[in-house]
Every structure is written in structure tokens, then in C-alpha cells.
Amino acid sequence: MSDGALTVLDGSHLRAIDCSLPSPASDVALTGARVLEIADSRVSSCHFGLSLPQNLKSSALRRINILDDAVFRSSQLDPEQASDTINLYITAIADQLKDDPLVVSILDGKTLRLFFDDEDDFAMLAEDLFTDLDAEDKGKICKSEIRNALLRMGIEMGVPPISDFPLLNDILKKHGADGKEELGQGQFAQLLQQILQELSEVLAEKNFVFIQNIKIINGSKLRKLLADEVQLGKVVEKIFKEKHSGNVSSGVAELTRSFLEKNGIELGLPPSEANEAVVLLYDAVFADVQNNKSATELERDEFASIVKEILGKFAEQLEANPVFHDLDQ
């Protein structure tokens, strides 16, 4: 893995996971808490040591009808029950990730090593950081400003947050980066290089994995809607009613597109304004709509059939080419 690269966790790696109980637990009763601990450990080992968000694990428990977490954790399970629960729980996590994948980045030191491969790049980086930190333009900064330099570099340059990666704090202490002595630009660059060099080596041995605030829209929610005739009927009814409040000459495609651009997020579509890829997605789907009669010319059943066809095309397109939506933007 290389720094900055996005990795999608969609549950596929969990399908073949070992769900057997570890010895000697295979022949004794276990608490529900211990069973979940074993399962979570197996899942984490498949995901670079990452602990999955609690809301995801809670959703997985609900999928297997464990609605009261506290009661289950205190319950006793025989070995067969424990093994079955581990299997069901891990499968539920895989299903949850298939519907709503996580996007992670892995810092392994490679980005930092790129700076050392090019002396000019590193010199420019050190100069820019020093200039930014030398607010009073004295030509010197306090040694402890190294922490702020790393903060400014951030994840984008391969530096994990100090609060989330304690080993970085150890490196800073080792190099006396909390001292109050003042450093010139050359001394600052030398200290920064030593710290980043050691950090890159530590990250190579112990990767830092973090979840990006990115939503993958892959059509899973739409497919569930299309499989639910009752909910689908309610959506069609809402769009059908739009013809009475809009332009009576509007075609069914135009009417449906207008509705989806305003309400698509609730149905599992990406925000229409998210990025150019979404605009192209809408254009591609509606370019294929053959019937664009005026909405007033259509009976409800024919109207519903066209809307279902449009939603089906969105689901197909998103399954083939999921949209990555950065929630921070």
C-alpha cells in the first residue's frame, strides 16, 4: 500500500474468514462479550488492524436480531452457539460493508521517503514550513514548533495525527522536539529530516490506517427500493403528483430528473451537485429514456414503469461505477 491511496472495504475479504473458536475456547461456554471480541479481532485482522466504527458493528448485530447488546454480552453460549454467532456476525458485517463500504487510507512511510529521494523537494518543504512558522520573521523559531510543522504537513504528506499515533510522540521526545531553544532554518531542516526519517521507518513497520470521510454510493440502497414494491410505489406516487405542480408539458424524463435531483439522496443517489461524474451519470441514464411523452399523457401504470426503468438504470450504473462522495466538501 502507498500513502494517500484509497482502499475500499466492501466486506469481500470477510467471506472466507475462519469462524472457528480458538482453542481452548472450543470446548467451554463463552459469554456473548467474548464471542464478539473474537469476531471483532478476526475482522480487524482482515482490515489492516482497523477497528470498525461502532455504528457499523451495531447495525450488523441488528441484522442478526441481537437488539439488546448489553443482554447478549452477559449471556452464556455453548461452543456451537458461539461458533454460529461468530459466523453470522461476521457475515452481517460483510453484508453491511457491501451495502455501505468504508474508504480507508494507509500511511506506510512511502510518501515521506519520496521527500528524502529529492533533496530539492525536501529543502523547499523545510523552507516553506520554517517561513510559515516564523511569524515574526526573526529567522529563528522555537524547537517545539516542530509539532506544528508536522501538523501542517498532515495526512496529505504522510504524517499521521500525533493524537492518534502515539509512536510519533515518542519520536518527538527522543529528538528533544519539545525543547525551548531556538533553531535557525538549517537546524530546523536537519531536525525535521531526522524526525521524518524515523517516522517513515516506524510507519513501514506499523502502518497507520484511518477511515476517510467518503461515502461510496454503489446502488445498493436503490436496489433495495426497487425490490420493495410498497416503497417504490410511494416514490412513484410522489413523482406522479409533481406533474400537477410543474409544467404540464414536461416530459416524464424531465419531471423524473427534476424530482431525483432534489430528492435523490433519500433514495440512494449521489447529490446531483457532488461532482462532474454525477452530472455525467444523470446525463447517461436519461439519454437512454425512450419514452418522453408529456406526463399528462401517461396513465399511472405506464408512468410507474418508466420511473422504475430509470431507477433501475441508475442502480446498474452505480453498481458498475460507484460514485465517491467526499462528505467534507
Rank of each mutant, 00 (worst) to 15 (best):
C46G: 01
I265N: 00
I141R: 02
V8Q: 10
A123E: 14
V230R: 15
D301T: 11
H175Q: 06
I141F: 05
D10L: 08
S26N: 14
L225D: 03
S245N: 14
D100R: 12
G219Q: 05
N148V: 04
E302T: 12
V104R: 07
F324A: 08
Q81Y: 05
A295M: 06
R73F: 05
I310L: 04
V285Y: 06
C46F: 06
S44E: 05
G176C: 06
Q190S: 11
R73K: 15
P79R: 10
R257H: 03
S83Y: 07
L125F: 01
F303I: 14
L50I: 07
L172S: 00
A149P: 06
D10H: 10
P270Q: 06
I146A: 03
D78Y: 12
F165S: 12
T31S: 14
C142D: 11
F303Y: 15
D137C: 13
T256C: 01
G139T: 04
L260T: 10
F130G: 05
A33V: 10
F130I: 02
A25T: 02
P166Q: 11
K143Q: 11
L150A: 08
M153E: 10
A287I: 12
G109Y: 02
V43H: 05
D326I: 13
N321L: 03
N247W: 01
L269H: 01
D120S: 14
S41H: 14
N218M: 04
A277H: 03
L9G: 06
T85K: 08
C142G: 04
I38E: 03
G184K: 05
P22N: 05
P53R: 13
R73G: 00
N65E: 13
I217Q: 05
I17T: 12
H244S: 01
Q193I: 10
L107E: 01
R223V: 00
Q197W: 07
E276M: 07
K293I: 01
L226Y: 02
S163D: 13
F314G: 02
L192W: 00
G219S: 09
V104E: 02
E145G: 00
D117K: 14
L6S: 13
R300P: 10
T7R: 15
G312M: 08
G312S: 05
E127I: 09
L327Y: 07
E316G: 00
